[in-house]
């Protein structure tokens, strides 16, 4: 296991003075093996980004805090085992980039617009490794080339001189350059068109096969989860609603929310009929759902019953399948 997340709970304060908060991630537990890709799928506002940021301890300070749980990361040889939750602020920079790194939907978040891309990657390397600048530059070029970018020709380009897909690939090169154990990818393809997006997915996949990196891939699109991941977590209002192999989640979803998600997009089912009206999940996700004492999906669920009025535990259905619902046969 490269990453073991146990009972992670993250508070988000809506009013700090009055100590009003909700758990934007609520007792989240899962683990990722070396070289495994797990998707986190859910609607916008369900807390996916917060989960990703919390793993790096990049969740916004003051308004949010990790209130319990652990994030255990170990390097491939198993020599180093670190609980990211317990690290002091000044120890974090050593871990970020080296053991765990992150890419975002918007490359502007991690690329500095006024520094040449080659120099940015060198900077990332030299922050962690003692080596000659020339050697670092060779490593940078190598990683750009792994990302199918002409490293020598593009070394001195500024981010704005590159297309959206290229910028995204530079970001992956920068995130991968220290060969981290875990890569968190937060919707890295959402702003790209189909073809460019496929290339970016393929390159993340390549890093998994060649560098054995474990990936937590955040997306709102089930078909992207299907393209890239081995396992899928269906996430709603801060909780894992269902967890299983990606094929199982898409072909035979069990949780009403997973079922609703698969039915609300065209052409994922085999018996698909054009222009058949899509399933619409009634209502919308609101912050009050995070605080609900019922099942958090209760207000929008087509299967709800009087048994759903208490907090619902995540049930283990088999060694690879979990679901948080009382109405699954």
């Amino acid at each position: 296991m490269s990453l073991i997340i146990d009972n992670l709970t993250v508070k988000l304060y809506t009013n700090f003075k009055k100590k009003e908060f909700f758990n934007v991630a609520d007792s989240v537990s899962f683990s990722i093996q070396n070289g495994e890709i797990i998707s986190v799928v859910g609607e916008s506002g369900s807390g996916k980004s917060f989960l990703g940021l919390s793993l790096m301890r990049l969740n916004p300070p003051y308004i949010s805090e990790i209130s319990s749980g652990s994030i255990l990361i170990s390097d491939t040889d198993g020599f180093e085992k670190i609980d990211i939750v317990k690290l002091k602020e000044n120890q974090l920079s050593d871990v970020r980039g080296r053991l765990i790194s992150m890419i975002f939907q918007d490359p502007n978040v991690s690329l500095n617009p006024v520094i040449k891309i080659g120099d940015q990657i060198i900077e990332a390397i030299l922050a962690h490794k003692k080596m000659k600048k020339k050697d670092a530059s060779d490593v940078a070029i190598h990683y750009l080339e792994l990302m199918r970018i002409d490293g020598k020709a593009r070394f001195n380009s500024y981010p704005h001189e590159l297309s959206g897909g290229m910028r995204q690939r530079v970001m992956i090169a920068m995130a991968m350059v220290l060969e981290p154990v875990v890569l968190v990818a937060d919707e890295p393809t959402t702003a790209l068109d189909v073809k460019t997006s496929l290339q970016v997915l393929a390159l993340i996949e390549k890093m998994r096969f060649e560098k054995n990196v474990s990936v937590l891939f955040i997306t709102h699109d089930l078909s992207i989860a299907r393209n890239i991941s081995d396992k899928t977590i269906v996430f709603y209002a801060g909780q894992i609603m269902e967890y299983g192999t990606t094929e199982d989640i898409i072909n035979s979803p069990l949780h009403p929310y997973s079922i609703s998600l698969t039915k609300s997009v065209p052409a994922l089912s085999k018996d698909y009929a054009p222009r058949e009206r899509l399933f619409v999940i009634p209502g919308s996700l609101s912050q009050s759902d995070f605080k609900s004492e019922k099942c958090r999906f209760y207000n929008r669920c087509f299967k709800r019953s009087k048994d759903c009025l208490n907090e619902i535990p995540l049930l283990k259905l088999s060694s690879e399948r979990f679901a948080r619902c009382v109405n699954i046969q």
Partner: peptide
């Protein structure tokens, strides 16, 4: 374009590393 929506699964998608 059509192949790109039919490409399911981690292994199949590797072929698109050079797309575009």
């Amino acid at each position: 374009l059509l192949e790109s929506i039919l490409a399911y699964g981690p292994k199949n998608i590797l072929q698109f590393a050079d797309a575009g």
